[in-house]
């Protein structure tokens, strides 16, 4: 039961990632995309869990790690809503052919991501304060560390060589 508690939210996040890829590709949910892309994108929750384990390693003695995972992944709601918005735009509108729909999609992609970042920061800060009983300064530091490590790894997997050539190319 405890293991399932730590498993279900990361699994659901992977499922939503698979669904988003399916919507972006086929404008709907199709089994041939949802399942394999869920597996491909499972690296996102796996990295988040690994970095959470590293940042909160002292707390695992007091709180079962499955509960920590479950509680931490509760902070993914803003991202799920953002991805659902992307799915809705691509499923119900025609951004590829209608300028207004395209503008709406860009506004949601960029504006929505800012909203999701800020909201999820707030939720995760509360996680570090309330669940892990950190002081505000320590909560902010650990949250920043978690975000920096996990997002760097995730971005490296998604577009590492491009980011590297963009950064080093400008210094070269």
């Amino acid at each position: 039961m405890s293991a399932w508690l730590g498993f279900k939210r990361p699994l659901f996040l992977a499922f939503v990632l698979g669904c988003t890829v399916s919507f972006l590709t086929a404008r709907t949910l199709t089994l041939r995309l949802v399942v394999p892309e869920m597996v491909s994108w499972a690296f996102v929750p796996l990295i988040e869990i690994a970095v959470l384990a590293a940042v909160c390693r002292r707390d695992c003695r007091n709180i079962p790690f499955a509960e920590l995972i479950d509680s931490f992944f509760g902070g993914y709601r803003p991202w799920l809503l953002w991805m659902t918005g992307i799915c809705a735009i691509w499923s119900l509108l025609s951004p590829a052919s209608k300028p207004l729909d395209w503008t709406l999609s860009i506004v949601w992609m960029l504006g929505g991501v800012v909203f999701a970042v800020v909201w999820s920061l707030f939720i995760d800060f509360r996680f570090f304060r309330a669940v892990l009983q950190r002081s505000p300064a320590v909560a902010a530091r650990e949250l920043a560390m978690h975000r920096f490590i996990s997002w760097t790894l995730i971005l490296a997997v998604i577009g590492g060589p491009t980011i590297w050539s963009d950064i080093t190319g400008r210094l070269w």
Binding site: T28, L29, I63, E67, D70, L80, L81, M83, S91, L92
Partner: peptide, 22 residues
């Protein structure tokens, strides 16, 4: 697509609910 979006939206709202000690 519409049914899928509705399903995901509902799941996203339910996702934030926590259970147990936390």
């Amino acid at each position: 697509g519409s049914l899928g979006v509705l399903g995901l939206l509902l799941c996203s709202f339910l996702f934030g609910r926590t259970a147990g000690v936390t």
